[in-house]
């Protein structure tokens, strides 16, 4: 390789980084220098090979997920602050009000959740609150593979999310809720025109079967514990419909 141009300027020309004067100068040189003409052809061929051989490596989905989780952990305040503050204040106020009323007016959830600190009133209140416009779901999806990862990083546990559309209980979505001061997952199912909320939170208590239904103000609820999770399903559907869904989830 003897030509000085070949060693440097040719590459600036190839990359379109020469100013007009130098580019013109190189083009005139190119007419007389066989070495530069050959090399330019070779470099152009090499470039097109490099660019057309699929060498670019795209970031895998697993990496994207990990980075999302990192960002969640490094963002202050916590992720839940994406919900406007007034909404949390309203929810807290509602819970406090209901809690103080229920202290006097309502008995504890009998036999269905004897050792649970969550009262029937809270469950029904949370259910009714979810029916208000815009409150039902934080993630609206009929796809369990969308709803399940949505909970990732938002709760300290992984709620079991399954769609039972084939059995007549399509999954509508999920949201975060608060019961007795603890974060719970709320899975939302539909039964014809009715909404069923299934609240899920972790427990250290032993498994229980599905308890006989409780009923109040026209709402039914069912309670059970299974594999370290406590479940409470609540709705205005018939007790038999609710039991059918509870059975599906329990299995």
């Amino acid at each position: 390789m003897s030509c000085d141009y070949t060693r440097t300027v040719l590459h600036g020309y190839l990359d379109g980084e020469l100013d007009a004067t130098r580019a013109g100068e190189f083009e005139r040189h190119l007419e007389t220098c066989r070495e530069c003409a050959n090399t330019l052809g070779a470099e152009e061929a090499l470039r097109s090979s490099l660019q057309s051989s699929g060498l670019y490596e795209h970031a895998p989905v697993s990496l994207r997920k990990k980075i999302r989780a990192d960002l969640d952990a490094a963002t202050a305040p916590a992720v839940t602050s994406w919900v406007p503050v007034w909404r949390w204040l309203a929810v807290t106020a509602a819970i406090l009000l209901v809690a103080s009323v229920s202290w006097y007016a309502w008995p504890r959830l009998q036999n269905s959740a004897a050792s649970s600190p969550v009262t029937a009133t809270e469950i029904i209140d949370a259910h009714v609150r979810s029916l208000q416009p815009g409150h039902l779901t934080d993630v609206a999806s009929t796809d369990q593979h969308t709803v399940k990862p949505w909970f990732d990083g938002k709760l300290a546990f992984v709620p079991p999310v399954k769609d039972f559309a084939d059995e007549g209980f399509p999954l509508v979505g999920g949201r975060l809720d608060v019961l007795s001061g603890q974060n719970v997952a709320a899975l939302v199912y539909a039964r014809r025109k009715h909404v069923i909320n299934v609240f899920v939170w972790p427990t250290k208590e032993p498994d229980t079967p599905i308890h006989p239904p409780g009923s109040r103000q026209g709402y039914q609820w069912l309670h059970w514990r299974h594999q370290g999770m406590e479940f409470c399903a609540v709705s205005d559907v018939s007790a038999s419909d609710l039991h059918e869904l509870a059975q599906l989830i329990y299995e």
Binding site: A42, E44, A45, L46, S49, S53
Partner: peptide
């Protein structure tokens, strides 16, 4: 030669 490179580069 440009030809040999084109073949190799595929």
């Amino acid at each position: 030669s440009p030809e040999s490179l084109a073949i190799a580069g595929d």
